[in-house]
């Protein structure tokens, strides 16, 4: 339903690109998360799709019609896209109900639709209040109700949970996506938090420096990341460079880049444990007790430093570490 073709946007007349040659598709009914660090171009991408910015190159089409290209631009108000802003952007001088009513035009019974939306987000009783009388989480849900009210074919959520603390965030994330799934709308969900993305998205698109590095099903990204960057987004990862290869006696293909997730490195594996193909010895430089588990900073004979986690409380100064060859990640970088 949404097709983006070699989309580029620069804010400094082409000296640098906030978004460069981005191409991807979105199927109707999908929930797709866009993940990237701040400055990776997530928000620019969202604003381009919503029509709040204009592309320098490339095109965006929605349901088969081009809505933005180099010679065409459909105004945001004509696009029928729902957008929930990071800062909610509720109209401060309108009641909650009026906020939700604002975008409903064509329906006969506007009020009923707005009330239905408020009921959906569990704020049916609050219609007469003003935005500043609500908590952050409630405002968030109003913003969602407002965006859903006109019945958009595509809903975009721009970092919707970043203003909330960790506990509330998880709770609200589940609530919000329960509501969204009921409506069956296609969702583009921007976040810098991989937990957010993994827990709700069917597909995840990774942006780095304005470029798409990978778009894949959530499960695949962990198992088969395209780059070391993607791998490290989903947990600490260490590159197996020449030194590590010799330390572990594991010669690897020189044309590829290899890495291992820190959590896959085992501490003191049983001597004949077939689980570990490669082992080496390491000195413990530092132990940091993190509640139940212990973080170890290790130094290998080759001089390399490594961090591993263990639950073993009896750690001596020198330990054995190892990993399984099937856990090695391979990239063509």
């Amino acid at each position: 339903m949404l097709a983006i073709k070699s989309l580029s946007k620069s804010f400094d007349k082409g000296k640098s690109y906030a978004l460069e040659n981005v191409t991807f598709d979105l199927k109707a009914g999908d929930v797709c998360a866009i993940v990237g660090e701040s400055g990776s171009g997530k928000t620019t991408l969202v604003r381009l799709i919503a029509g709040l910015e204009r592309p320098d190159h490339g095109s965006i089409s929605l349901d088969g019609n081009i809505i933005a290209s180099m010679d065409k631009f459909v105004q945001p108000e004509k696009r029928k896209i729902g957008l929930v802003f990071q800062e909610y952007a509720l109209f401060p001088h309108l009641t909650i109900l009026d906020n939700v009513l604002y975008g409903i035009f064509k329906l006969k019974n506007k009020k009923a639709r707005a009330q239905e939306m408020l009921d959906l987000v569990g704020l049916g009783e609050m219609g007469k209040r003003y935005p500043h009388q609500l908590s952050g989480g409630q405002q968030q849900r109003v913003a969602l109700a407002r965006a859903l009210a006109p019945g958009p074919s595509l809903l975009i959520l721009d970092e919707p949970f970043s203003n909330l603390d960790a506990m509330l965030r998880m709770q609200l994330r589940n609530e919000v996506f329960d509501i969204i799934k009921k409506t069956g709308v296609t969702v583009l969900f921007v976040t810098h938090d991989t937990q957010d993305a993994l827990s709700v998205a069917d597909e995840i698109l990774i942006l780095q420096n304005g470029k798409v590095v990978q778009k894949d099903a959530a499960a695949n990204l962990y198992v088969k990341p395209n780059t070391l960057y993607v791998a490290s987004l989903f947990g600490n990862t260490v590159q197996i460079n020449k030194n590590l290869q010799s330390a572990f006696h594991c010669p690897l293909n020189e044309e590829c880049c290899h890495a291992i997730r820190n959590e896959k490195i085992k501490v003191n594996p049983a001597a004949l444990d077939s689980d570990c193909d490669y082992i080496t010895h390491a000195k413990v430089i530092k132990k940091i007790v993190l509640g139940d588990s212990i973080q170890l900073l290790l130094k290998l004979d080759s001089g390399e430093q490594l961090t591993v986690m263990t639950q073993d409380k009896n750690i001596e100064d020198t330990i054995t570490i190892g990993f399984n060859s099937k856990d090695i990640l391979e990239f063509n970088e």
Binding site: P76, E77, F85, A89, R146, P150
Partner: peptide, 12 residues
Amino acid sequence: SIPDSSKVLGVG
């Protein structure tokens, strides 16, 4: 974001 969200909601 306030005028922007008005526009996204279909208002010129």
